[in-house]
Design a protein around this nucleic acid. Structure first.
Lengths: 191, 191
DNA sequence: TCCGCATTCTTAGAGATGTAAGAATAATTG
DNA sequence: CAATTATTCTTACATCTCTAAGAATGCGGA
């Protein structure tokens, strides 16, 4: 989440040196800028950016299970678990199990969680309005279409080039060295 | 970093329910999909996605200080510090102080770090090629222009609506409750 | 010149997210 | 029906990034 002055610097970077394939980088920067803009606004309502995505799903589909929530949010279950736990502590949602199934945990909005909707949605709309200010609707539509196409193109990736495994190669595998080292460093000065 | 099957589900979501202002969400998903595609390829060379951005900067400007690196990467200094430490441990870079200044720490690529360039750049180009497959150059250009405009629009944000402070309102401030709780939970079952 | 402020690096710790693995429960099938 | 398999939640731990604060160093004005 870069700060405003750094955004300026990033902008400068984009205006000056835009070689060739930097589209991916641009997308990343734009995503971060938007996330930051929204987060600043959400914080005034004591909602973190992480919770926003889950709240938004629940406003549309209250009572989903945690795994359904995970799928819709596009994150793994531990992420959802942590977020739901935090939101429950903040009184925004409640876990409940329905009779007949002791495995599934359904997540329900509390009145407080539901009430946030009318406050938070306008903030997202404001950020959107600011973002696309001065951009024609046609260009926004094109951008949307291109991003969708990219998502489509990349969704097939991962199955991939046949010449190697390349199937979610367990992040650890090779980062084990630095991991261990960091851990060692941390533990060498505990209390 | 969602998995391929989840990407499918995300895609479906975008094709079916695309209400109004979801552009921000789309940008986020696209950024994640691209990051993931690149990361999978980088891992085969023992490079994490986090290191990639720093390496790329150093290939263009070897010997920057850590704070210069931070500015160019658009991240805070602790992030850079951690990444440089990890990369140093992996033998990709070396910290060095120039005589005349004992404060600034310059970061230099090792031969190993430099050699990665010719291996890694093609991977990024491949991801880019896959991403924009089937999209016209004109549409890509439009997308680039729109994203740049968005970045521009959002860069001014943060100074903001005059009716409230809204100046990087210290992420902690309100998330203090859940934070404490998590900490408590973690410490209640240590060794 | 020297003192105070600014810069730079570093440390501490929180939060989001991921992978891996465990436990409980449901579903399926021989 | 019982045993195996799959699903769901949970825990553990790693990584990346941030904010906050400390320490060392450099710099500029009284």
């Amino acid at each position: 989440m870069p700060r405003p002055d750094e955004l300026q610097s990033i902008l400068k970077h984009w205006r000056e040196a835009v070689p060739e394939d930097r589209l991916a980088h641009l997308i990343r920067d734009a995503a971060r800028a938007q996330a930051r803009a929204l987060q600043m606004r959400l914080l005034e309502h004591a909602v973190s950016f992480g919770h926003w995505s889950f709240l938004r799903i629940l406003w549309e589909a209250n009572g989903l299970t945690q795994s359904e929530l995970s799928a819709r949010a596009g994150v793994m279950e531990p992420t959802t678990y942590a977020a739901v736990t935090a939101m429950e502590r903040l009184g925004l949602v409640r876990r409940r199990q329905l009779s007949g199934n002791r495995k599934n945990v359904h997540v329900y909005l509390t009145p407080k969680g539901r009430a946030l909707r009318s406050k938070l949605i306008p903030l997202a709309e404001e950020v959107n309005r600011i973002s696309v200010g001065g951009v024609s609707a046609a260009d926004v539509a094109t951008t949307r279409r291109v991003l969708l196409a990219m998502l489509d193109n990349l969704a097939g990736d991962g199955a991939a080039p046949a010449n190697s495994v390349r199937r979610v190669p367990s992040t650890r595998e090779l980062s084990r060295l630095p991991a261990r080292a960091q851990q060692r460093a941390r533990k060498s000065a505990p209390a």
